[in-house]
């Protein structure tokens, strides 16, 4: 469960996030939708404690990202925008390394690695070095690595970028599976279809602010637009940076 309260962040002169608030409940998929440069990534990076907010706070299972970032990191799994893997390690070793960094005992992390390799169907490349992996294989590795410690909350920044259709379908399936198990899932995207197909709750962000939030139906009702695209465009005010 994640509660975001009036987060602000600027980089030098640029005010990237100006007071973003929303809630993401357990057992639901919450999508941050907005054009490129709207402040989605910056918001997520504050949630996963890589950036420190200038003002405001966010609570992950009731723990503050500002005052207890190390504790927050124990209960989140993160797929960051540039989910790089270690090229000289195999997928399995990549997963095990993160398990160890999370403080899991050897037997636990080995069991988790095997489970995730099966869950994400990584068997045919899991023991090969990551150098030369396809985009989809790299993403699976990064995802498995993010889930090794069974985090209650999963944060994903543009997870479908650069994936082919099959990989996107697999990812959706996995996120739904995690939702069924009661995880809190937050992911960002600039692809409207993506968000509409997957999310229970949509937070529309533009120019560093939340311009609307709610279920897809609620957003349609609010804008009076039946078409998905028209609804979002009317909320954001332009269609620049959306797909």
């Amino acid at each position: 469960m994640i509660a975001v309260q009036a987060l602000r962040k600027s980089f030098g002169e640029v005010l990237a996030v100006r007071g973003v608030s929303f809630d993401a409940a357990d057992g639901r998929i919450t999508g941050l939708l907005g054009p490129n440069g709207a402040g989605k990534s910056t918001t997520l990076r504050m949630l996963y404690t890589v950036l420190r907010p200038d003002a405001g706070d966010a609570f992950v299972d009731g723990v503050s990202v500002v005052t207890a970032p190390l504790e927050v990191r124990r209960s989140i799994g993160v797929l960051s925008h540039s989910a790089g893997v270690y090229p000289h390690l195999t997928a399995r070793e990549n997963i095990l390394y993160f398990g160890e960094l999370h403080g899991l005992d050897r037997s636990v992390r080995e069991r988790r690695a095997d489970e995730l390799i099966e869950l994400l169907e990584m068997q045919d490349f899991a023991t090969r070095r990551a150098k030369g992996y396809s985009q989809g294989q790299r993403l699976k590795t990064a995802l498995a690595r993010a889930l090794v410690h069974e985090p209650r909350n999963v944060l994903l920044d543009e997870p479908t970028n650069g994936l082919d259709v099959m990989a996107v379908r697999n990812l959706r399936g996995l996120l739904r599976k995690l939702r069924e198990r009661g995880h809190c899932i937050v992911f960002s995207s600039h692809v409207m279809q993506e968000v509409a197909a997957l999310c229970d709750e949509i937070v529309v962000i533009a120019r560093g602010e939340v311009v609307a939030s709610g279920t897809l139906e609620a957003l349609r009702a609010r804008t009076g637009q039946e078409g998905l695209e028209d609804a979002f465009v009317s909320l954001i005010g332009s269609d620049a940076g959306l797909e």
Binding site: R45, Y48, T49, V50, L70, E71, R73, R74, I76, V78, L79, S80, H81, S82, A83, G84, V85, Y86, P87, F98, L101, H102, G103, A142, R145, A146
Partner: peptide, 17 residues
Amino acid sequence: GERERGSLEPLLTTPVP
């Protein structure tokens, strides 16, 4: 190298100071 590969940010999300 770690930053260029994009593996730094995931590393920073682990509970290690």
